[in-house]
Design a protein around this nucleic acid. Sequence first.
RNA 1: GCCAGGGUAGCUCAGCGGUAGAGCAGGGGACUCAUAAGCCCUUGGUCGGGAGUUCGAUUCUCCCCCCUGGCACCA
Length: 518
Amino acid sequence: MTDMARTFSITTAIDYTNGAPHIGHAYEKVLTDAIARHRRLRGQPVFFLTGVDQHGQKVQQSAQKLGLEPKAFVDGITAQFLALWSKLGISHDAWAATTEPVHIRCVQGMLQRLWDSGHFYKDKRGGHYSVRQEQFLTEKERGPDGEFGPEWGEVVYIEEENYYFKLAEHRDWLLGLIDSRSKSAHPLVIPEFRAAELRNAVEKLSGDLCISRPKSRLTWGIEMPFDPGFVTYVWFDALSNYISFAGYDPSPGADLSTFQSLWPAVHVIGKDILVPPHGIYWLAMLRALGFADNEMPTLLVHGWWNIAGAKMSKSLGNIVDPAALAEKYGPAALRWYLLADIATGRDADFSIERLEQRYNAELANNIGNLLNRTLNMTRRYRGGTLKKCGSPLAGFVSEKAKAWDAAMESYQPHAAIEAAMEIAVRCNAHVEETAPWKLAKDEAQAAQLDGVLYTLSESLRILSILLEPFIPEQAAAMRAQLNWTAEPSTAATEWGLLPDGHQLSEPVPLFPRIELQP
RNA sequence: GCCAGGGUAGCUCAGCGGUAGAGCAGGGGACUCAUAAGCCCUUGGUCGGGAGUUCGAUUCUCCCCCCUGGCACCA
């Protein structure tokens, strides 16, 4: 059973500020937003954290190419992300930008603490280095002929000193953690098959993790507190955002009560960053800091949107721009599509046609039109005033509201949307079955007509709550037209809250149809 | 090479031992409160291929093929 008084903490991966946001970034945030909004409807306190990863070599290089300071460069990209989240109605409670002083202090404190407690060591290792690209090359970068390709320019073998995190010594503990939490009430990894994938990778784990770069190569990062000649590289910087922005203080003996009320979190991440960063590095880092097994987060791993069956990539030139889609179709159409057309954890194919179809069929034709016809009939036949009566649909609607709640609790928005849609479909059928326009012509059937109008209005009121996590703005607009001003909540999905004599407002088409290109 | 997910109607998917289902799209019809929406009816599939277990397989087992991901290896 969920502890409703306890804060529900949920985070997304933070996005790298080396390029504009694409549809995958948007999906992750919309998914997390829907989950967060559902918990708020339940009355549970929520801490929803998202943000941007602003440091690192690629940013440094991109800025250099444009003749900009790294900070100016990342500020520009960060603004694009923030503008998109605002447009899409992402309701995060906190914003993690890794150039923030609070983050830098926390990361340095963590590094110092782990250095002091012997989790790091300094070592000199050699490798093939591309002078042009300013990076070490891995074996993967070799071509079929065993040589590094011309795109790398001159490649030299050099040795470099760096700091390493003793990762390998956490291997057995991690295997045990995966095993003990798999199939438990609080799984470490969702969906379950991803846990198997993680376990597989952990079993083969060998070697430690390089966590630094000498300043001769990289200056755009957080300085190692015990060696000003180095900055920390990627992992301790980016992954730490989940706790640094939740108030974690790594100082020995610090008061962690606030942090502990916000931890552990559910991390919503893409399948590409489960192994190794979140599933291995992050968990080992937390353990090294002294986090207990029951303080390890849950990793909710979502799939990818492919484009016509192909992976989305810059080289294929098939990047889908969420800002342009939100501009053209509206945030609601985009959010609805992203939540309805993919099962959490799986991949799906992105299709504008399906976005248009789902919007027209479900939002415009089914829900929007139901609202419109209900308000119109009530106004025409009863001056907009409802008479409270019993309803043959009360049980059905309650059942669907329960299914919606269960689906959201298990992070399945597409299933929750389906449950909500069934209410609209059932109501539309109810209109046809009862034919209010015929009842209205017969004084003897007045009670039946009142019953139908109340059933439809009350169903719509409940439906507006069920839609809140997905399309909050339109859900609120529905309530406004129903003249129902109470705060939406799961508790208010109870049947029969519209009082006798309730006056509905004016009907205004809520979801104008998208005119499809012939 | 190893592990995992997927391959079911034009599209998106559900089913997972008893002679194939939903939504959308397509076709037909009745209605009129409504955003030319909604409702009813309907066309449509040798359930990736092959073998096996079974009275019976989309559903279980084995082999193979294709797509996706992870890990490893070669170079």
